[in-house]
Write a protein that binds this DNA or RNA. Structure first.
Lengths: 216, 216
DNA sequence: CACAGGATGTTAACGGCGTCAACTTCAGCC
DNA sequence: GGCTGAAGTTGACGCCGTTAACATCCTGTG
């Protein structure tokens, strides 16, 4: 097996697993997790439905792969916007602004890629739902690089005296919860029909509020 | 038509709509929105699948009804736990504790009734996803009685000088986002496998944090 | 270099789901 | 007391996920 084998009529696809994931990601992007349909992905790759079973244990497994892609995309988008941000001189101010930027990046991705975002956090049958205790750094999981950056930023808040040490525990959970919940309220929930400008204002106020709860 | 017509072998059910919703609610309670299956609800009521179409436009419509029930159950559970709470003398302290209790009640319901909670906030095809701007009080919607109580509590925070008026706008969104996001991270997300005691500690810290961001 | 065997894809089929069309039963009203 | 329309039934269609049995290719070993 290998990459592409010329333009022959090849019976064997060559890289079917990735092709299927790609097609499924496209489906997820336009319709969320419930749109990642095994037969449709196979069809769009030009292969028979059952061929997928050579590479995935079933639809749930394919969905799981797409979910991982969604998480990676979220992380990539966040780190990208973070790196684009101008760095401030005052380390305390830098940490605060950085925390706000992380939250904004999260919500921005959710709004710009609703299908992928919802897939990244969809329920995925029985296999442990993303294992990782929530309090230890998962360095081997690239999709949570952004999570590590959040942790570091919170540490910086403590180090610069912006955040009291006794507030540090579970601070990432509080921050994450807020932006995650807001994203979902905007995507599926009661904030869905809010016009963009009002929505953005609400996002800003919410980020300000949670950061205010963390610092001091 | 009417309520129950004795114990005869009745061809007509009498109250099929509610019976179907009841069965579907049970399904949702044990498996979330993806478990509310029209045929299964009909089967468990002892009626043919297509009978449901006399009372619902389709599966999505049935799910919509179940969703409303889930929202009502959430609201009822919250107001109940709120009313059970002892009232404090100091109005400022009362408002703060009340806000915390609202958050706790929300998350508690999510943990105790995961299927219903997820159904209450599941995506519901095209019909407007819960319309209500998020900033005006929807008194005619019983499922959001709890939301009104949140609003009132936030007003009380301002009135007692615990919260600065300029922080008031969108405060309910910030509060709601945090508890909503935390609930979902606990149900489906990375916090799912956290042992109950650690989980409760995280919940308390998170509630403390967001309330801290709101007051002062 | 042949060829055996595993990896990869295919066709055929099953059961379950949502949904439509056409038929049947019942309950109430002139 | 028949008629009419609401409420429920049977039957069928298409789509989905999944399994079993078969076909094709690729690769490594003698």
């Amino acid at each position: 097996m290998g990459a592409i084998t010329g333009g022959k009529s090849r019976y064997h696809h060559g890289d079917l697993r990735n092709a299927l994931i790609g097609a499924a990601v496209e489906l997820a992007a336009e319709g969320g997790p419930e749109r990642v349909i095994l037969r449709e992905a196979a069809r769009s790759v030009g292969v028979s439905p059952t061929a997928a079973y050579r590479h995935f244990s079933g639809q749930g497994d394919l969905l799981h792969a797409v979910k991982a892609r969604g998480q990676q995309a979220l992380a990539a988008s966040m780190t990208e916007t973070l790196h684009a941000r101008p760095r401030l001189d005052d380390p305390g101010e830098e940490a605060v602004r950085r925390a706000e930027a992380i939250g904004r990046g999260y919500i921005r991705f959710a709004i710009e890629h609703p299908g992928l975002f919802r897939t990244a956090f969809c329920r995925t049958t029985p296999e442990e739902p993303d294992a990782f205790t929530g309090l230890e750094a998962p360095d081997d999981r690239p999709e949570f690089a952004a999570f590590v950056e959040l942790s570091d930023t919170l540490d910086a808040l403590v180090a610069t005296g912006r955040m009291r040490p006794e507030n540090r525990p579970a601070a990432e959970v509080a921050a994450w919860s807020t932006v995650h919940g807001l994203s979902l309220l905007i995507l599926d929930g009661p904030l869905a029909r809010l016009p963009a400008d009002q929505r953005d204002a609400v996002v800003e106020r919410t980020i300000t509020t949670i950061v205010a709860g963390l610092v001091r």
